[in-house]
Computed example of a mutant assay.
Amino acid sequence: MTDFPTDNAGIARSGQNRDAMEGTLTDERLGHLVRLLGDHPTVVMSGTKIADELGVSRSEVWRLIEHLRELGVQIEGHPATGYQLGAIPDLLLPEALEPQIKGTLFAHNVHHYFRIGSTNVAAMQAGAAGAPEGTVFVAEEQTAGKGRGGHSWHSVESAGIYCSVLLRPRVAPADALILALAAGVATADAIASVTGLAPDLRWPNDLLFGLKKFCGILTELNAEATRVRYVVIGVGINVNHQEFPEEISKVATSLRLESGRVWSRVEVAAALLKSLDRVYAELLRGGAEARRGMIARFQEMSSLAKDRRVFVEEDGGYAGTSAGLDERGFLQVSTNHGKSVRTVLSGGVRSIEDVEGIRQLHH
């Protein structure tokens, strides 16, 4: 899920995305079938045995097998001889994720889609319908993912992580920015714990390596004047992408391109959910002190937050020098050679080097 041009994900009020049609929730039997074959990787399992395990007919087993094949899962064999996985699939199925996130807020309510318009749209709809806090939506592919400003996401099937979580924090809308910052910190921590790589944070919550973006986060909320009803945090991570379309190849990257190796998306997604759980719990328990600590931590992890020449896409666009975050988490930018300081409320922020690189790209 990559939001390009290199756009900062921000905080958006709820609204229906008519282009993002919700997909079909993955049949639980598909996950059970993949787990069953995965638990016996060296054994050819008969259709009768699988049918007994799933509680379906043999003809239904054949239909489920064909469905998985259409979705790219390598399954060898046929009804007369039985079935066997050709390779263990790296799918973000609840059966794969939930054992790794036991004890977290997200452990028991993971919804999986092979293909969906937008996990954020699905999560916002679930929030409006009363779904519980901690509900997770993951997809192998997004067809209409959106970032801030309406930019589309570059989504490659089963190469990235496209994940949205539903939260119901007891906070005022004015304090919601801290959740976006916390999501950025949590995601960076998760990436570092799995890969050993050290991402850079761009306000409010993009993740980069150098000038190239590999992760975007979109935080949306539904709120009254004085309280937030629910918040959806959508995280898109380029994990095993090997290449990108020409128009974004110079500003996009992935964990695979940065490290030279393939990563388990299940491991990365599990680390992400555990990190989000930990950071969210810290904010809820710690009050004002925890919020100040989170702002300080974000600033420490971001090379763009302080003493960096930046361009802000707000109020017609302006350049200046980043001057750190204020007590609410908004970025401060010093302009006119230090004579004034402006607060960035929602505009995209890029380093001057990034802006110059994009100009060269388009010329």
Rank of each mutant, 00 (worst) to 15 (best):
Q299D: 13
Q299W: 00
N205L: 07
T335N: 03
T6I: 11
A269F: 00
G316T: 04
G357M: 11
G134N: 10
A183D: 02
I237T: 13
S193L: 02
L325G: 03
Q100D: 12
R69F: 08
L255V: 08
P89I: 08
F298G: 02
T143M: 11
N120E: 06
V231R: 00
D206G: 11
S46Q: 10
N238F: 00
E22C: 02
E289P: 03
H40T: 10
L273V: 09
T48S: 09
A9G: 15
H78E: 14
T195M: 03
A305Y: 03
L197Q: 06
L30V: 06
V355C: 08
G86S: 06
P99N: 13
H154K: 04
H78C: 12
K339T: 15
V341M: 04
V310Y: 12
N336R: 12
T143A: 05
L218P: 01
A20R: 03
L331G: 13
L272K: 05
R328F: 15
F214K: 09
K102D: 14
S302Q: 04
I50V: 14
T219I: 03
F209P: 13
H151M: 01
M1H: 14
N17W: 09
E300G: 10
V333M: 11
V171M: 13
S249P: 07
R292N: 14
L97K: 01
A183I: 01
N8V: 09
A159Y: 04
D3K: 00
D39P: 02
K146A: 11
P94D: 05
G317A: 11
V56I: 15
L331N: 05
D90Q: 02
A174C: 03
A323L: 04
H241C: 08
A252H: 09
L284F: 01
P89K: 10
L167S: 07
E141L: 12
L325V: 10
L105F: 01
S302D: 09
P41D: 07
